[in-house]
């Protein structure tokens, strides 16, 4: 079986690998040698389970995320679906031609997906445009990398932070597409009952 490293983040190494008959992603939370072994195991197990739980929960409520194939606690690895598609970061990159219609459509999909996720009390924890993808096959918006995700108890603040992180990405990486972020917020506001208090919190933070 051939494993190809595609990314090393702070938390994990991400590989592409075949899983049974399918192309898959293997995300291994590598052992941190600096951490006491007991602490390392506790943190890794907890975060691995949290990530898998959020992915499964999202899928159950109809938010498009990679399907979880297998959780290998012993080897600290989650196997999940390999999504063929482009990240929103790529779609908005300089020179990428995107029409107003397309960008409105994109903003609508993002706003709706985030609304659904937050309505189910899930916080992504690292919402950047690199973690939002459009599938090649059906143009569905998929949210990826739930490595820092968690389930809250109705925290308005955590949700506002999620949006704030996304806004920061827009400001720093896609300054020309700020209108798109505003449309995302508009759609988010329309699709989620509790959006008002989250958006108010987001405003307060500025």
């Amino acid at each position: 079986m051939s494993k190809n490293l595609i990314k090393q983040g702070a938390e994990a190494r991400v590989y592409t690998t075949p899983f049974l008959t399918r192309a898959a992603i293997a995300k291994e939370r590598f052992r941190k040698t600096y951490r006491h072994p007991l602490l390392d195991k506790k943190l890794t197990d907890r975060r691995l389970v949290q990530e898998a739980r959020c992915l499964v929960k999202c899928r159950n409520i109809g938010v498009d995320v990679p399907a979880v194939y297998f959780v290998d606690l012993e080897n600290r690895t989650i196997y999940m679906e390999y999504i063929e598609g482009k990240t929103v970061n790529d779609l908005l990159a300089d020179g990428a031609a995107i029409t107003t219609e397309e960008s409105d459509e994109l903003a609508k999909k993002i706003g709706e997906a985030l609304a659904k996720m937050h309505a189910a009390e899930m916080i992504h924890g690292d919402l950047t445009t690199s973690n939002l993808m459009i599938r090649d096959v059906n143009k569905s918006l998929a949210i990826i990398d739930f490595g820092l995700s968690f389930i809250t108890s109705c925290s308005v603040e955590d949700k506002a932070v999620d949006l704030y992180v996304l806004e920061k990405t827009f400001l720093s990486t896609h300054p020309h597409a700020h209108h798109l972020f505003l449309t995302i917020l508009k759609v988010y506001g329309e699709s989620y009952n509790n959006a008002k208090s989250v958006l108010r919190k987001l405003d307060e933070g500025k």
Partner: peptide, 18 residues
């Protein structure tokens, strides 16, 4: 010490990766 310092190293690593 092990707990506090692990937290500091973890956040520092995240900033480095970022």
């Amino acid at each position: 010490q092990e707990t506090l310092f692990a937290m500091l190293v973890e956040t520092t690593e995240r900033a480095m990766a970022h």
